[in-house]
């Protein structure tokens, strides 16, 4: 076990992936609790598909992937949130439309320029080699922003999540907090996407929250448990992917699935906290 870990950390690219992954997993889990409870889980999925589309376009135009993706995905977050809040359009259906369209655009653009190669596969399902030094810096910056804003808005995020009408009626700027949550989610997804894969990144948002809700019954405990669980699952997933030579993103998702099953079984056995 010790040898395995020493091996693991002797590769610089794995250390980078570990740092970025743990930070992304932590932030995604914190935001995920709110997204899942507000029935916005599809937002994460939609944003990652839009991210895939923009990455594809950036690649074909030989532009820097992150500089293009971040503003476009932020814009998408704004639009998706507007759509889910409007009562006239069916929010979930609209998000599905946008995300599959973005994916389709990405696939067509790629096939017209570079052709379907390993790059596409890497964007879809993630690659541990994708993390550069500048990604580490960016993920650290995003993580600091998310953590600071989250801690400072924690009580208000709870209120907005639990009951938007009450929060708004008692004078809170609800729209501002919804936007904040959507923007932070967009940032986290863009940073984590190339490692976890566009198809798999939304699991980092959804799984930890759902898993901890099986067993824990206060908001604070759910948030803390999600954060710890998400980081632990990422660490185990990455280590396992190294030891077993499996794809990183998929391994992390499977570890999350295992944790979910474990917590569900515990809840069935009547373990509640």
């Amino acid at each position: 076990m010790f040898d395995l870990l020493r091996d693991l950390f002797s590769y610089a690219f794995i250390v980078r992936a570990m740092v970025v992954g743990i930070l992304v997993a932590l932030c995604a889990a914190l935001l995920g609790v709110t997204l899942v409870l507000k029935r916005y889980s599809m937002l994460g999925d939609g944003l990652s598909h839009v991210g895939f589309g923009t990455l594809a376009i950036a690649m074909s135009l030989h532009l820097a992937p992150l500089e293009v993706s971040i503003p476009v995905v932020l814009l998408a977050a704004f639009c998706l949130l507007r759509i889910s809040e409007s009562s006239k359009i069916k929010g979930d259906a609209a998000i599905a439309l946008i995300s599959s369209s973005a994916l389709a655009i990405g696939v067509v653009v790629i096939s017209m320029t570079t052709g379907m190669n390993t790059d596409v596969c890497n964007y879809m399902f993630g690659s541990i080699l994708a993390m550069s030094k500048s990604d580490v810096m960016l993920s650290m910056a995003v993580a600091v922003v998310v953590l600071v804003l989250y801690v400072f808005s924690y009580n208000r995020i709870f209120s907005v999540t639990f009951d938007e009408s009450f929060a708004k009626a008692t004078g809170m700027k609800v729209a501002r907090y919804n936007m904040l949550i959507a923007f932070l989610t967009a940032m986290v997804i863009v940073v984590g996407m190339r490692m976890m894969g566009a198809m798999l990144i939304s699991s980092l948002v959804i799984f930890p929250a759902l898993t901890s809700m099986r067993v824990f019954s206060s908001f604070k405990r759910v948030v803390l448990c999600s954060a710890v669980l998400s980081v632990a699952c990422f660490f185990i997933g990455l280590t396992a992917s190294f030891a077993l030579s499996t794809p990183t993103g998929a391994s992390v998702v499977l570890v999350n699935l295992a944790a979910f099953c474990l917590f569900s079984a515990a809840a069935k056995l009547g373990i509640k906290a």
């Binding site: 409870l37 009580n155 709870f158 009951d163 206060s218």
Partner: peptide, 28 residues
């Protein structure tokens, strides 16, 4: 102003302690 809205679907299965919910009334 205090407001008691109708319950929403989101709240039915919400993991929050009673104290957390009541305290959130003090935010204003």
């Amino acid at each position: 102003i205090g407001y008691l809205p109708q319950q929403t679907v989101v709240q039915k299965d919400f993991p929050a302690s009673v104290r957390e919910v009541v305290l959130s009334g003090c935010l204003n």
